[in-house]
Structure formats: structure tokens, C-alpha cells
Design a protein around this nucleic acid. Structure first.
Length: 288
DNA sequence: TTGAAGAAACCCGGTATGCG
DNA sequence: CGCATACCGGGTTTCTTCAA
């Protein structure tokens, strides 16, 4: 059996051939699921058995992805970095430009007419891209926690929940490992603390032990130095679940709270309003 | 040359240890 | 005993340094 890179106690260097086949594997992964984060590619590589889940291995992946992009093999647009951002006011190249943008971005708040309110939580950036494809479509907030949530962040989420004042359904996506479970529990506990009167229903959607057996997910040894009390068995990264299944999971979570008749009505109103907006703005900025 | 390791930036929880 | 601190665990990305 081939030794996984990085798992050997001997620091064996990769040959050029091994590096090349690793690169081919990376290209396959990125091509299939782009856009994704460097971290996301790393986890997918682990799930695919390409590399061990260790810090050095992560660095190898990140370096190879750098090369592949600089060499023009992988387009830059296929790799995303949600941790750096730009602050800039929205500005327009004239009124016509503004008019087009306004009509395009107009959306009716879908949940105003629904009896429930939904938010989704992701433990890490690596799956945020996958989940956001669905949450955006449904106008659902996606909260990316990054390990353990900050007090600041949870407080502001709680303020939204309090203000909306409806039965609130929170769905959490994270790893099946001691800290992952604790982090989810911690999000729930602190949110309830900040919004004690809110009607909150919190559910950890993934990774569950049922999913591990049902989908035969790739496991890794559990680190047992902290947080491990009461945790049995191997750990599983949420990245081991395919993007398709993850998308299906979120879709199910969200759609069960949607009343289709009311949705139809909102969509109808939205279409009419967008049209009105277009008409109203048609002469905007043009000489009478 | 390049792989491995360390550092930097930031947010956390839990536990062990030592001090007062 | 209670508190502060250190260190381990969880999350992300990139750059620099050192050794083979």
C-alpha cells in the first residue's frame, strides 16, 4: 500500500513525478468544484486520499496551487479567498449605469411573508462557497463562524433574531470532531443566552454519525488532547461530504420552512415591482 | 531549488498548573 | 479556593526562514 505523503516518520521528499501526479489530482478537484478556497482544495485532496491531513501537507497543497495558478494551469478565478476584502463605496458610471444596477439587484425580501425565519451556520470557509450557492438563492443569511464564534458576532446575529421575532430555525454545518461538536453547542448556547425569549430551534445538520456510516465518509484519527470528553471514535471533516450532498442538505433545511403559495405570491409581486421600477426609471436622468 | 517549519494576523473553549 | 496564564484543540491564508 502506498504511504500517504506526510504520514511517514521519515522526511521523504517527493519526487518530481509524485509532485506532478499530485498536481494533476489538484487540477481535477478544482476543475470539478471551482470556485473553492485553498483550504477547501486541501480537504478534498485528503478526502480523495491524495495527501495526509497534516500541517505540512496543507502547505504543500497551498504551494502547488500557487504554482498552478502562476503557471496558468488553473485560472485565478477558480480559487477564492474570503478572508481578505475590499472596502469601497458603491459608485456608478452615470445614471444609466445606476439604473441598470438598481433594476438588476432589486429583490423582494422572501421571508417577510413566511411564518418562519432561517439562518445557516458554517464552521469554516471551505464549505461556505458550497452552502452560499443555496442560501443566496433563498435569501437566507449564511454565518461563517471559523472555529469558535466570537462574542461580537453571535451578539449581532442574536439581535437580528430578536428583531425578526418569528420562530427561528438555525442549521449548523461542521466537522464531526470534539471541537466541532463543542463549537456548534457553543453557538447554540450563547445565542440562546443573548436571545432568551426568542423561539429558537437549533439543529446540527452535518456531520452526523448516521451520515458517516450511510455515506461511508473518510475518517481521520481523533485528537485526544482537548475537548475529547465523551467523544467516541474517529473524526470526519465536513469536506468529506460531496458538494452535491451538502447542497441537498441545505436545500432541504430551507425548503421545509417555505410555504409555496406565499412564495409564489412574493415572486409575483417581485416581478411586477421590478417592472414598475424599470418603467419608473426609464426616463430617469434623460432629458424630458 | 524546494520542502519543511515558523511566523503573522484574528476569533474562540477547555484543562492543567501555579500563584496569592 | 479562585483567578491568571499557558497550552492544546477548532477555524484561514500567505510570507519568510532554514536546511537538505
Amino acid at each position: 500500500m502506498a504511504e500517504l505523503y506526510g504520514s511517514s516518520p521519515v522526511k521523504a521528499r517527493r519526487t518530481q513525478q509524485e509532485i506532478n501526479s499530485l498536481k494533476l489530482g489538484l487540477v481535477d478537484i478544482v476543475e470539478a468544484e471551482q470556485p473553492m478556497t485553498v483550504r477547501g482544495v486541501f480537504y478534498r485532496s485528503v478526502a480523495a486520499g491524495l495527501i495526509a491531513k497534516t500541517d505540512p501537507s496543507y502547505k504543500v497543497i497551498s504551494r502547488l496551487l500557487l504554482q498552478l495558478r502562476r503557471d496558468g494551469v488553473i485560472p485565478y478565478s477558480w480559487i477564492t479567498d474570503g478572508t481578505r476584502w475590499q472596502i469601497k463605496p458603491r459608485s456608478f458610471n452615470g445614471m444609466e449605469d445606476a439604473r441598470i444596477a438598481m433594476v438588476r439587484m432589486f429583490r423582494r425580501a422572501l421571508w417577510n411573508d413566511q411564518d418562519a425565519y432561517v439562518e445557516v451556520f458554517a464552521e469554516k470557509d471551505a464549505i461556505a462557497g458550497i452552502l452560499s450557492a443555496v442560501t443566496s438563492e433563498w435569501d437566507v443569511p449564511l454565518n461563517v463562524v471559523r472555529g469558535f464564534a466570537s462574542e461580537t458576532f453571535l451578539w449581532s446575529v442574536a439581535q437580528d433574531i430578536i428583531a425578526i421575532d418569528k420562530p427561528t430555525y438555525l442549521y449548523h454545518f461542521g466537522d464531526h470532531d470534539p471541537s466541532g461538536l463543542l463549537s456548534a453547542q457553543d453557538v447554540e448556547r450563547r445565542l440562546r443566552g443573548f436571545a432568551p425569549d426568542a423561539d429558537i430551534h437549533f439543529k446540527r445538520v452535518a456531520v452526523t454519525t448516521a451520515q458517516i456510516t450511510k455515506w461511508k465518509l473518510l475518517t481521520r484519527p481523533t485528537k485526544t488532547s482537548t475537548h475529547h470528553r465523551g467523544f467516541e471514535g474517529e473524526s470526519v471533516e465536513i469536506d468529506a461530504i460531496s458538494a452535491t450532498r451538502l447542497r441537498q442538505l441545505v436545500t432541504d433545511c430551507i425548503e421545509r420552512h417555505i410555504d409555496p403559495d406565499r412564495l409564489d405570491r412574493v415572486r409575483g409581486v417581485e416581478a411586477v415591482e421590478r417592472q414598475s421600477l424599470e418603467i419608473a426609471l426609464a426616463t430617469w436622468g434623460k432629458p424630458a
